[in-house]
């Protein structure tokens, strides 16, 4: 049986060169490609996520790990049998209309990506129509809405109404977050969930999709 610990540790260290080297060794040893991804690369990333959650890793270190994991996945992916899935789901994320705050939303998207989700980041000042188009184009299962201002919170409600009016609300789970958001507000506007931070958002979508 192939020892994946070196590969996982290289992901944790964010060492892309070592990841590529060990992933290639696994391929040469005829290890199941899906196992290389799940038991080596994603297993390492799971450790990164857990360490980040307890403040044991910084965001840039997580990003380096994610880049190393992605490089490994890119190497192995062509060997997968058609239909084998390498992501846990697809998330469309953006800051709602009228709000230009970006970095908190980007952080949440990054953590989701690091946790194995495909993330489509639409940026800031995103209209309901743009969310609908992205959901359809990417067959997304989750929509994550962000805002930072008390005066743009109600755009989240408007966005959810647009999703319903255009017939995609039933196909997706909607989660929301941002400085002025509360669970009560989330309940009131018909969102499926709310998280206070990036790690919480990952836990939330994992729960919603399972």
């Amino acid at each position: 049986m192939f020892d994946f610990s070196g590969l996982s540790n290289a992901v944790i260290a964010g060492d892309e060169d070592v990841v590529l080297d060990l992933a290639q060794q696994a391929i040469n040893a005829k290890v199941d490609p899906l196992s290389i991804i799940n038991d080596g690369l994603i297993a390492g990333m799971n450790v990164v996520g857990a360490r980040f959650k307890v403040n044991d890793m910084y965001v840039p270190e997580v990003l380096m790990s994610a880049a190393a994991m992605k490089a490994g996945v890119a190497l192995v992916k062509p060997l997968l049998i058609s239909g084998e899935v390498t992501t846990k789901g697809t998330v469309v994320i953006g800051t709602v209309t009228g709000d230009l705050h970006d970095i908190g939303k980007s952080l949440v998207g990054m953590m989701m990506e690091c946790s194995g989700y495909a993330v489509i980041d639409l940026g800031v000042d995103v209209s309901g129509d743009d969310f609908v188009a992205a959901i359809k184009a990417n067959k997304a299962e989750i929509v994550a809405l962000s805002c930072m201002l008390t005066t743009t919170m109600l755009q989240m409600k408007t966005t959810i109404e647009v999703l319903a009016a255009q017939g995609v609300r039933k196909d997706v789970k909607v989660i929301i977050g941002g400085a002025p958001i509360t669970q009560e507000f989330s309940d009131n506007i018909g969102s499926d969930g709310y998280a206070t931070d990036a790690a919480g958002a990952v836990d939330l979508i994992t729960k919603l999709l399972n």
Partner: peptide, 8 residues
């Protein structure tokens, strides 16, 4: 100071 939750 700023506004409470409301649209402009």
């Amino acid at each position: 100071m700023t506004l409470p939750m409301m649209s402009i």
